[in-house]
Amino acid sequence: MDEDYEVEFVERGDRKALFLVRGVTPAFANGIRRTMIADVPTLAIDEVRVIENSSVMFDEQIALRLGLVPLTTPPAEFDEDDVVTLSIDVAGPATAYSGDLVSADDMVQPADQNVPIIELKDGQRLELEADAVLETGKAHAKHQGGVSVGYRHLQRVEVVGDADEFEESEPNIVRGVVEIDGELVDTAEFDNDLTQKFPGKEVAVHDVEKAFVFHVETDGSMTVEELVNRATDSIESRALELEDAVSL
């Protein structure tokens, strides 16, 4: 059987994208979605060596917060056992931000500079060294590259006639991206309400088979494109492993 897939971007940014995929089965779409969330590894701080922590928080609490700071993870540069060391040294009165983290590796930086870690008062100080490791979202949510990944069935909207003149009009809500006359339209354009787009008309809404609109947001550790590609690679490598295992 021939696979005939088609991808079309609706919205495209580094960290957030919306794209339509035609031709995939629900099982495959869900496989890609789940892989983006749980099986694409990213770097995150996992171990902390505290030199001085005179802040109001326990070391463990600081460590948890540091772990949740997204770190840029360039593709194919790191292996499962690699460790990247970062350090931070902030003396109060000041707020320690993720941007104060100094990385030993230029490729690995906090994805956002302005994540507050802790507010330090006069005389308080935070100085520590941290080790970032590569893991998957399955192991801990801090390693999740995709933070908001989902898909909707593409819906096709058709005008089928005029609405009943004397019927009280009720809102007809659709969400996401719909197909109207072969065009992809963001439903936010008409306030998600089909009665605003087609006043006085009766419309029919149908699911388009094998067409899914993906919404992918990353935490900044990689771009949407990289995340999708790495998710695809992950499924492919598992299928290859299975093929090798049964071809004895």
Binding site: E3, E225, N229
Partner: peptide
């Protein structure tokens, strides 16, 4: 996966 990758 091949088809999806190239389409993407």
């Amino acid at each position: 996966t091949d088809a999806f990758r190239s389409a993407f």
